[in-house]
Nucleic acid binder design. Sequence first.
DNA 1: GACGCCTACTCGTCTATACGAGTAGGCGTC
DNA 2: GACGCCTACTCGTATAGACGAGTAGGCGTC
Lengths: 262, 262
Amino acid sequence: MPSQTSAVLGALDPTSDRAVFRQIADQLREAIDKGRFKEGDKLPSETELVEHYGVSRMTVRNSLSVLQGEGLVVSEHGKGVFVRPRPPVRRLASDRFARRHRQQGKAAFTVEAEAAGSRPEVDSLEVKEERPSQDIATRLGGPRKVLARRRRYLLDGRPVEFAVSYIPLDLASGTPIAEPNPGPGGIYARLEELGHHLDHFDEEIRARMPSPQEIRTLRLAAGVPVIHLIRTAYDSEGRAVEVCDTVMAADAYVLSYQLPAT
Amino acid sequence: MPSQTSAVLGALDPTSDRAVFRQIADQLREAIDKGRFKEGDKLPSETELVEHYGVSRMTVRNSLSVLQGEGLVVSEHGKGVFVRPRPPVRRLASDRFARRHRQQGKAAFTVEAEAAGSRPEVDSLEVKEERPSQDIATRLGGPRKVLARRRRYLLDGRPVEFAVSYIPLDLASGTPIAEPNPGPGGIYARLEELGHHLDHFDEEIRARMPSPQEIRTLRLAAGVPVIHLIRTAYDSEGRAVEVCDTVMAADAYVLSYQLPAT
DNA sequence: GACGCCTACTCGTCTATACGAGTAGGCGTC
DNA sequence: GACGCCTACTCGTATAGACGAGTAGGCGTC
């Protein structure tokens, strides 16, 4: 029903000093916001928009690229431009590293995902010794070498998170922490078994646009930022025992913290 | 020295199947990453890039728009395209609402900004009674009317944050909370004076691309996401006494939380 | 010197056209 | 029915050209 375009979209205002491609983008955005195009709906094709507005195709494409940059739509080569579906979000509670969870012995990601009815996967395992970057070394108190554990998390086949844990090599070497699978409860459980009683975590949160590498790894659509979280774990002696550097697809997460008011 | 372009940028690979505009974007990105173009530097003009690569101007513009979308560069009409300077970041510690800070009587934003050597400003004051949105009402336990306090925060003249506090009207009405200036220590201090002893805060954090309205309010450059933080304050009886909905320019903030491991 | 114009350069917008490549469905052949 | 081709439609990439508008500096006039 291509002729329905005119039922949803209005006309341009030739007296406006607002650029034509912005006017078109505005109309499409409004139509999406008001639900006249719903999640997953196909927008009118470029050709239809060209005919509807009487402008050239490059102008229409310019409009659509504005909406892509805002993360409102995604284009699929050969198929069309679609209103971007909002993926269900995964909530990360601030007590997700509480000892009581650790003692249950299952990985937090797996438990939470299954509770939410999603199929969790962990891949791209890489565990190796490295020389830490300046930043990581500083956070860990200056070790010369660290064990780096890299993994990627997927939900229902969609990559949502990429994480690297760095542990000072003198803590990790020869322990289950250096194994691809560190066992139930993860490396925090192993650290505590090794006598490093965990005291607290520091988390730093930034948001930014992804690098091309991150776009590939997380298969990000245009206009989706990432949340960059750097967590440092401290034991009861105040020593930093682990730094975890995590990049998350921002459209898949809500972080949740509870803070005392005292 | 326009001829320096060829000293920094290489040639295209005609055998590559990577699109020409992507190859150009890659080369510019690499040059920026490696510091051959530094923060604030002007990139070669579109015309220079056209001559250097032997492509059409639209192709060059396409490359530059890729970098703009990544937030790496900003263009200034009539002047050129510049490597985007990274503004100094403002750190928000998770103890910023601790009672001891509140009792000192100065607004947290002002104190922190001056400590960091920046000039803080708060503007766009609006305090009025409203019917809450569905979401806000739910978070506050369903009041029919709320007091909404809107303000915008600036650092050295640059808007960095827009915040709206919602307080159930039956708590705020006729108190200093309903005044444009609620007095030392802010509304949290007033709430405690009114017998609402604060117990804890919940914070929800999302990251996303800004709406056109947010781009205007925060004067955001292309490719800068926002951090959306929703804080709910609870008193010792478990009642939600305030919801603060905050939108921050992501390039200006690092959020910092400390979590117990217990 | 102060002012204003003029010019050269910058990016912004828009048109018109061409071809490439991915998708989906029809339709005929086997 | 299964397969493969063909076609029509989609978006992706690139060219060439035109005009508009903001910026900054030179330069002449006053």
